[in-house]
């Protein structure tokens, strides 16, 4: 996994709460057995019309948001299905940072495993940033993970909370399985006791 330390990028708004993973990546694309190449299907039913052409009303299709790497959305982003294809699609499309008032649990965990940083800001702060992304051309944000801050171009800084354990993994791009396997002896010992139980 690519380490995440600091990131500066264009912010795109997506003004809706409860965006579920069925919207992020519709089911017809889950039949693929690869991990790569899902970006073309991101928000497919919102991004494209029935004839396959782009839907001009969908924010990510607006010219000023091409190349965005930070997405600002509403509360409970990523609810529903556990499909990791959702963060795979977001990452492949170019998003490294997601900002929302809250994220669904499984989705948040799936983001961490793929080097995407989900940042929770208050509803007011997230809405303020989203409105700026909507109204200012080329609105860029800088995210500093060691300091746990998001900074706008005017120098206004927003702090965010983050679990220190996950932070370390992101900063160093650590391999989860490798970390757990350091404790292989503990697992084997536990297993011996567990296997002796009747259920």
């Amino acid at each position: 996994m690519e380490p995440f330390v600091e990131h500066t990028g264009l912010a795109a708004p997506l003004d809706a709460a409860n965006i579920d993973t069925d919207q992020i990546i519709p089911k017809q694309f889950l039949k693929r057995i690869e991990r790569a190449g899902f970006g073309q299907f991101l928000f497919f039913d919102w991004r494209f019309k029935d004839d396959g052409s782009e839907n001009p009303d969908f924010s990510l299709n607006e010219p000023q948001y091409r190349g965005a790497s930070i997405l600002i959305a509403g509360a409970n982003f990523g609810c529903g299905s556990s499909r990791e294809h959702a963060p795979w699609a977001l990452l492949d499309y170019g998003f490294r940072v997601l900002i929302a008032p809250s994220f669904a649990d499984i989705f948040r965990s799936n983001c961490y495993k793929n080097g995407i940083l989900p940042i929770e800001l208050s509803s007011e702060d997230a809405a303020r940033l989203r409105r700026q992304a909507e109204t200012r051309d080329g609105f860029q944000l800088t995210v500093n993970l060691p300091k746990q801050t998001v900074s706008d171009p005017d120098g206004k800084t927003y702090s965010f909370e983050m679990d220190s354990f996950r932070k370390e993994f992101l900063l160093k791009g650590l391999d989860d399985i490798g970390w757990t396997l350091q404790y292989e002896r503990d697992i084997a010992e536990y297993e011996k006791k567990r296997d002796a139980l009747p259920t």
Binding site: I106, S109, N114, D163, I177, T180, L181, I187
Partner: peptide, 22 residues
């Protein structure tokens, strides 16, 4: 509980998961 594919791999490899206490 439900998990993502990276966690599926983690359980296949280690029979364990890293979890924050809910």
């Amino acid at each position: 509980f439900g998990i993502g594919t990276s966690e599926v791999e983690h359980v296949l490899a280690t029979q364990c998961l890293q979890q924050q206490r809910p």
